[in-house]
Design a protein around this nucleic acid. Structure first.
Lengths: 162, 162
DNA sequence: CTTTTAGTTCTGTTATTCCAGAACCAAAAG
DNA sequence: CTTTTGGTTCTGGAATAACAGAACTAAAAG
């Protein structure tokens, strides 16, 4: 029996998937890939087989397959199986995703490194004022990179304790 | 007189522009827009007029114009003028860029907020173990968001002192 | 061995992004 | 007022990304 309450919940889920889908899209995933990930985050139970995903998102097999392939290769999704059922039940890989998030955060060093090269090149230029301001940004980036690394390390320490 | 040394320097500049251009591209800018920004970072002196940019990047007027328009509207670039010369000399707006970087960093809260909604929806679901892991990610995100905010605030405090 | 199922890979189409070229505009110079 | 200069806006095309559909594969079921 499908009640009105279920229907409303369904509607909220759909909205959530679109909303979060856009977020993941903006953070680098293809539109459908983002929505697959979003769906796996909000669906109940939190693992779905290929067809259920395809059905919910009204997408083609190939698109879903590719989306799941990139997500699994990124470590953000994996799957479980149940004996006597050869379907794969895809789900969020929380630890993989977390590592992903951490790695992205640690990548704040990159800009600082690039700018460091620029400063090397600029060291005897005729515009020291600009170099100074650039240097300020380098310092800021390095300061933040260090800080973020430290935050992550501390958090990991806390995790191993508890 | 163009010496070999100048030529080598020029070559390094070109490489740098491509390299950094890719970086800015990956961080959301259109390819040419990224290279314009990269060029303004490495060029000497660090301000160039429209034609110089166009010339260096071998791009069309419209493309350069649009690139500069988006960069200025983002506050990452501005321009100076010199009396008796109606050209605009475009340059990196270091403070605007820094604000940009800060704002992007502060946006780490977004994911946490989105996931918080998901957890609300999940609160009486049949898979508390997954909810727990999701919650762990929410906590991590919030922890980091707070930490980053604090890092930025502290850095700003240091700046006002000196 | 044949068929079905679960999913992948290949091929082509559609949509979007990115840029070039030309028309256009405003201000300054002649 | 006309022309030149510095730049913007509009229009179309080429490259790329995202997806659909069909062909394909491997394993399981019959």
């Amino acid at each position: 029996m499908t009640t009105t309450v279920d229907g409303e919940k369904m509607e909220r889920v759909r909205e959530k998937v679109e909303q979060m889908g856009v977020f993941f899209e903006r953070s680098g995933l293809a539109p459908l890939t983002g929505r697959v990930f979003a769906y796996l985050l909000v669906c109940e139970p939190p693992h779905k087989d290929f067809f259920a995903i395809q059905e919910f998102l009204q997408a083609s097999k190939s698109a879903v397959s590719n989306a799941l392939a990139t997500l699994t290769s990124e470590g953000m999704v994996d799957y479980i199986t149940f004996s006597g059922d050869r379907r794969r039940y895809f789900r969020i890989n929380t630890t993989g995703w977390l590592n992903n998030l951490k790695n992205k955060l640690r990548r704040v060093t990159v800009l600082g490194d690039l700018l460091d090269d620029v400063l090397q090149e600029r060291c005897n230029s005729r515009s020291p004022d600009f170099s100074d301001e650039l240097n300020k940004i380098v310092v800021f980036q390095n300061y933040l990179a260090r800080g973020i690394d430290q935050l992550i390390d501390e958090w990991e320490k806390k995790q191993t304790v508890s």
